[in-house]
Design a protein around this nucleic acid. Structure first.
Lengths: 84, 84
DNA sequence: CCCAATTTGTGCGTATGTATC
DNA sequence: CGATACATACGCACAAATTGG
């Protein structure tokens, strides 16, 4: 989705992480929203799955993203509680 | 079955797809032939199920493979009608 | 009809090799 | 060289559908 791939810019995975956070802020992704599968989302973003994962792991560690069981999907949790 | 795992070669899933097509051409797999379960076939080929699936999905999309009723199994359909 | 086993469908976790900057 | 990015490949776990007793 129109990321900056120019040299010298921020890494793709950082841009993606920011893009996801923006989606929460804008209300596009509300709490409990179930993300598409990594493979599918990566395809939509036109990045590799590995790069997308790198962004997601960042958000996971920051507590912005929550992994539900072993079901294989991610849900957003209450964002504002965990955003410092 | 004796696939080329050397670096620089074609991906395994491509080789497997070709191997399956060759089986049809050679007459080993005639129309209507029911394939073994994915798990079993993967074991015979000494590849992972995921890699085997990747090859099968390719053939499915190309119309060389047909999925029959019970989601279960795959049958080969008239190969020559769909091969350009 | 019910139930357990089988098989496909899906998705994540991880590792490796290659290329580029 | 190290960081970034991609493609490939394996494994594991679970859901859903089907099968057969």
């Amino acid at each position: 989705m129109d990321f900056d791939r120019l040299k010298g810019g921020n890494p793709l995975y950082q841009q993606i992480a920011k893009w996801m956070i923006d989606h929460i802020h804008s209300g596009n992704w509300k709490e409990g929203y179930k993300l598409p599968a990594e493979e599918e989302l990566a395809e939509q973003l036109e990045v590799s799955r590995g790069t997308l994962r790198k962004a997601m792991v960042r958000l996971l560690k920051q507590g912005l993203l929550e992994q539900v069981q072993r079901k294989g999907d991610f849900h957003f949790k209450s964002f504002y509680h965990n955003h410092n």
